[in-house]
């Protein structure tokens, strides 16, 4: 599936929720259930320090596609990471570079991606793009 198709799926899933409680409960479940990153990659090198929560991101290239794994110490941040990973992981670097994150607005989680929120998510998205640019250069 393309990034856009996955994002549309996510928007559809979230449209079934009536209120914020259900959306957040779903995100918290995502955050709780997904083993996102191998403990050995939770290193300082992979750490993005937000003022409010910490985020770890690790990337590898497999068959010309980037596999992202990530984690956070805060469960809501982790839930959003799970959504972002679902959209961006296992995709080609070029597609990741060109993709946007507008779907986060559509599912009502825009405030978590505010640069002033300091939860590490904005830096995380920047980091995903940086990995994509680096791997794209490598592939060229």
């Amino acid at each position: 599936m393309t990034i856009e198709e996955i994002q549309n799926d996510i928007v559809d899933e979230f449209s079934m929720f009536d209120d914020w409680m259900q959306r957040y409960e779903y995100m918290i479940e995502l955050g709780k259930s997904l083993p996102l990153i191998n403990e050995q990659y939770k290193t300082d090198d992979n750490l993005i320090k937000g003022c409010q929560s910490k985020v770890w991101v690790h990337a590898t290239l497999e068959n010309d596609k980037i596999i992202f794994t990530a984690d956070s110490d805060a469960i809501i941040t982790k839930g959003i990471i799970a959504i972002l990973i679902r959209a961006f992981s296992n995709q080609k670097p070029k597609d990741i570079i060109e993709a946007n994150t507008n779907f986060i607005d559509e599912i009502g989680l825009k405030e978590h991606l505010s640069p002033t929120r300091a939860n590490g998510l904005v830096s995380m998205i920047k980091q995903l793009k940086m990995y994509a640019i680096a791997y794209q250069t490598q592939l060229n």
């Binding site: 914020w20 409680m21 957040y24 918290i28 003022c51 409010q52 929560s53 110490d73 805060a74 469960i75 809501i76 941040t77 978590h112 300091a118 939860n119």
Partner: peptide
């Protein structure tokens, strides 16, 4: 995590500081 608590409280109209 205090951040998670702050996010949910905000949804309930309650302003606290976290961090």
């Amino acid at each position: 995590h205090p951040y998670d608590m702050g996010v949910i409280l905000d949804k309930l109209g309650i302003a606290v500081r976290t961090g």
